[in-house]
Amino acid sequence: MKKIICGISFILLSSLCTTAQTDMRIGAMLGYGSEIESVGIGVVGEIPLFESFTIAPSFVYFFPRDHVFVKTSIFEINGNVNYYFMELESFAFYGLGGINYTNVKVKADGFGLGDYSESDGKIGANIGGGATFNFGKNWVPFAELKYVISDFDQLVINAGIKFNI
């Protein structure tokens, strides 16, 4: 029974992917997080699912923020679905939604107590939108704005470039 379900799932997913845009993309981006008030760097992928929908996994590491004796750093892992609702020749707009894992690490030095370090991770949701700009090349610049809804809420602005693979 498991083999039959797996076989049917494979056939359905294969047929969905054949109707999608043919280009998978991978790229790099710069971001800014409103709560950590820091710039981050990251990687992003875009995998066609079916017409107008893509899966967009990403990873962003925000540079540590120093507050006197305390250093805070954040990274996030995202699994978004992008829905392209307007596609023109030179640009396209999309809405995004997905799941987010954010990890915050706080490290304190001093205070006569020695070194102290603690980290915590939370799962949340992403909601937002973005745009891609088509120059007819093998690469596509993009910009997006999203809000992370979790115990570590923050607004994140990303911009970068994706390469067709």
Rank of each mutant, 00 (worst) to 15 (best):
P57T: 08
A28G: 15
I26M: 13
G31M: 06
M86I: 02
R25S: 06
P48E: 04
S90G: 00
F91L: 07
F85Q: 09
T102R: 07
E37W: 02
K71P: 00
V81P: 12
I47W: 10
G33T: 07
V106C: 02
F91A: 05
P64G: 08
G33D: 14
S58A: 15
E51G: 04
A56M: 10
A20D: 06
Y94V: 00
K105N: 14
I55Q: 00
V68M: 07
N103K: 13
M86P: 01
F85N: 09
A108I: 06
F63E: 06
N103S: 13
G40E: 10
G79T: 15
S58N: 11
L30A: 15
G42D: 10
G27D: 09
A92N: 08
I26L: 14
F62W: 07
E51I: 05
V60E: 06
L49A: 09
D109R: 12
G40I: 11
G27E: 08
S58T: 02
V44S: 13
H67S: 12
N82L: 12
N78P: 07
E37S: 13
L49Q: 04
V39W: 06
F53Y: 15
A28I: 13
F75Y: 15
G45M: 10
K107H: 02
G95Y: 01
E46L: 05
I26G: 14
S38I: 10
Q21G: 10
T72P: 01
F63A: 11
Y83I: 03
P48R: 04
Y101D: 13
K105T: 08
N100D: 14
R65H: 09
F63R: 03
Y94M: 05
N80A: 14
L113H: 06
N78F: 05
I55Y: 15
G42M: 12
